[in-house]
Amino acid sequence: MVRIENLIKRYGDFTLDISMEIPKGKVTGLVGRNGAGKTTTIKVLLGLIKIDSGKVSVMGKDAAALTAEDRKRIGAALAESGFSGLLRVRDVAEILSAMYDDTDRESFLRLCGRFGLPEDKQIKEFSTGMKAKLRVLTALSHRSDLLIMDEPTAGLDVEARNEILDMLRDYLRENEDCSILISSHISSDLENLCDDIYLINSGRVILHEETDRLLDSYGVMRVDEETYETLDRQHILAVRKENFGYSCFADDRRYYEESCPGIVIQKGSIDDLILIMAGGELL
């Protein structure tokens, strides 16, 4: 569905240099710290910025050459961009039904009502959570082949985040062939949703793994300096210096459970992945 090959995009000192793929019907997570290059990658996919070199193909076409018809098959929710704050939900319903052939005005309004978005209030008067919900509902208002979500839950409380994730799960149940790219720096958003995860740091992909394997096989060891010096490092991907010694992120938890029974090793999480791989030293 989406293929990025050797993409290079330079912004002053920052260079995005990645390759990645989003298969049909899969949910792909894009994680990384703020400023890692997640939004830049998404903007490239949506044809909003130009690339310096490489190839970016979306639904079989160059991302920069997507037509209005192609865009009808894409649903996008951007982190800090949406409809004008002067509009109301009922205006948005009219606009969407004029834009997409399969958007039903009434069901969009019903869905907005279910998620507590009043029809007659200007968007500028909405809370951060309400604006985020509207952005996601807008992206889900029509049947898409590709959904692109940039930090859909950023800045929201747990309840609003869960509501947004529920919306996405409902959509996925009804549209099994839809491919989704979702960027986030909140691990719990992605652990139960994504089939695979790309971790990017300073503009580069530093890990790509299936979520199930990441959660089942990867692990984190917290060891003191003395233990660290004698530790077998063949499955350690990254280490991070801590007050007590080192946190080590390993790609084979069972190997260390069997070979180093005295060491406490916990299951890996996406938070650990970001903290240690993006914030530590790669081996």
Partner: peptide, 12 residues
């Protein structure tokens, strides 16, 4: 206003 252009250009 409010960085609306990127979103508008994702529409059909």
């Amino acid at each position: 206003a409010d960085n609306g252009m990127p979103f508008l250009l994702t529409l059909p």
